[in-house]
Design a protein around this nucleic acid. Structure first.
Length: 491
RNA sequence: GGCGCUAUCGUCUAGGGGUUAGGACGGAAGAUUCUCAAUCUUCAAACCCGGGUUCGAUUCCCGGUAGCGCUACCA
């Protein structure tokens, strides 16, 4: 079989972040799509740090990117750093130069920037450099005069550059509209375009899946691949993730919602977060939304990717943690929390509860978990949903809370007194508690709700809480009786 | 300015020459339960504008508009 079919069977994809900040949600989605594509097709995922911009790269950023990726928990197969591959990039650039497809430009950096950035259409090249005879170029280089190496875009013959994008279809651009971009800077460091293409070729990348902001750059990349004698890989560009105001997500403008670790720290399940990101710009086309990683992997294909930008629908000034995130992300998270086995959920909740300073056993956490599972949307909600299980003494609440519907303080006190009697002797299991308390209500001529509310407030400190009998059971007789007594004092 | 990409409910999307334009989130109302949550039911909510092609366009083509991207010796 021809080589192309083996490529399509075992694709090699790469995720190539540049370490100039934390892991951005848009980058995370690009990584996820690459991962899904590779895993769906039994391919290889390559992580490549595109760190050729020495000025802006930081070690802190490298670490925070790894931190974000680690939380996503998807993994990869090979890792590379571009900064360790610079010789390869240079070799590629000079090979292009030797073919006459690049030239030295001795124009000082940033010279004539004013003309470039504005008025008269596209800047194409610096005058005098492109046409400079090779001998003169060599001579000036030999004297140590600094230069950038530029690609000689073949625009003489009205040539068209073209490629097929797996998402956007056939793309064609006139070479006339492409400027002589740099390959090497005057400090001999490779530019992004060069380094990226040289590495993609060397690493045998078969599919480049990346953000749509690179769509127009791709014409330059096709030119580089061809000039260096490589067959360009397949391209698939992803629609961008934007803020509710339509602008691209940025830390400065939009704050922590654009950072992956913010989701982690707020109590998202990584699988729910991945699920959410997948639904932005991609659809399985069968109305499925809540999907496991396995289902996503099985369903994923480039054909399902959209072409228009997707809004991450967060609220700019958020009152609560939950409010700052896209409601769909929160919903998916709560759905997936409910889908987790109690043991699994409990194990994820435990470090959060302990981290908040509560000394709680795994066994107790396991008993609390089913009672709050349907009541939390983010893992961190455990702290507010299960507070009364965790604290020794309840936070102060208003005594009026104890008064039942259509009742008064006297009724509340009566209920509490009766409850204390009944509960002192009954076995603390769901059914006996149920029978005893309902019998007591009937005896006093009260509705079940009128009986239960004062007790619930007494033991939970609020009206809204999990079902009463299960709660009493987990809390235990001692705590329950003590809290009922305290409540009775308040009236 | 030049070049490119995009346009379906508030948001994510399905669909496609003839449909009551489908689903989901969010919102509203109701049912259910010891409260809350969950669950269930119901409701409101969209094809950017103009021209063409056609018996018929939201769908195809062109133009406009808007948004976004690229236009660096950033990536």
């Amino acid at each position: 079989m021809p080589e192309s079919s083996s490529i399509s069977l075992n694709p090699r994809v790469r995720f190539a972040p540049s370490p100039t900040g934390f892991l951005h949600v848009g980058s995370a989605r690009t990584f996820i799509f690459n991962w899904l594509y590779a895993r769906h097709n039994h391919g290889t995922v390559i992580l490549r740090l595109d760190d050729t911009d020495v000025e802006r790269n930081t070690q802190a950023s490298v670490e925070s990117i790894f931190e974000g990726l680690k939380w996503l928990n998807l993994g990869w197969d090979e890792v590379y750093k571009q900064s360790e591959r610079i010789e390869l990039h240079r070799k590629t650039a000079w090979a292009i130069f030797e073919k006459g497809l690049a030239y030295r430009d001795f124009t000082p950096a940033h010279a004539g920037e004013a003309e470039k950035s504005g008025a008269q259409g596209t800047w194409l090249f610096n005058p005098g450099a492109r046409e400079m005879p090779r001998q003169e170029s060599d001579r000036r280089a030999a004297t140590g005069e600094p230069f950038a190496l530029r690609f000689r875009v073949p625009r003489e013959l009205g040539q068209m550059v073209r490629f097929i994008d797996a998402v956007y279809g056939e793309q064609i651009k006139a070479a006339d509209d492409i400027e002589d971009f740099a390959l090497l800077r005057s400090d001999a460091m490779p530019t992004y375009h060069l380094a990226s293409c040289a590495d993609d070729a060397d690493l045998h990348i078969s599919q480049i899946i990346r953000g749509q902001d690179h769509l127009t750059n791709t014409f330059k990349h096709v030119l580089i691949f061809e000039a260096a004698g490589f067959v360009p890989p397949q391209f698939a560009h992803l629609p961008l993730l934007v803020a509710p105001d339509g602008t691209k997500l940025s830390k400065r403008r939009h704050g922590p919602v654009v950072s992956v670790t913010t989701y982690r720290d707020a109590g998202f399940l990584p699988e729910a977060f991945i699920n959410f990101l997948c639904l932005l710009g991609w659809s399985p086309k069968n109305d499925r939304e809540n999907m496991s990683l396995r289902e996503l992997r099985d369903a994923f294909s480039l054909e399902g990717i959209n072409r228009s930008n997707a809004v991450v629908n967060f609220k700019e000034p958020a009152a609560t943690a939950e409010e700052m995130f896209d409601p769909k992300a929160v919903w998916l998270n709560s759905e997936q929390i409910r889908g987790l086995a109690v043991e699994d959920l409990s194990a994820r909740l435990l470090p959060i509860v302990r981290g908040a300073g509560f000394d709680i056993s795994a066994e107790k956490m396991l008993r609390i978990t089913p009672l709050i599972r349907e009541r939390i949307k983010l893992l961190n909600d455990v702290l507010t949903a299960a507070d009364f299980f965790l604290v020794k003494d309840l936070a102060p609440y208003h005594p009026a809370e104890l008064i039942p519907q259509k009742g008064d303080a006297a009724m509340a006190l009566k209920v509490l007194t009766k409850a204390r009697q009944v509960l002192a002797t009954v076995e603390f299991k769901h059914d006996p508690l149920d029978h005893a308390l309902r019998a007591a209500a009937q005896e006093m001529g009260l509705k079940a709700g009128q009986m239960f509310q004062p007790i619930r407030v007494a033991v939970c400190g609020r009206k809204n809480a999990p079902p009463l009998f299960e709660t009493l059971e987990v809390l235990g007789k001692d705590t329950v009786l003590r809290r009922i007594e305290d409540a009775a004092q308040k009236i």
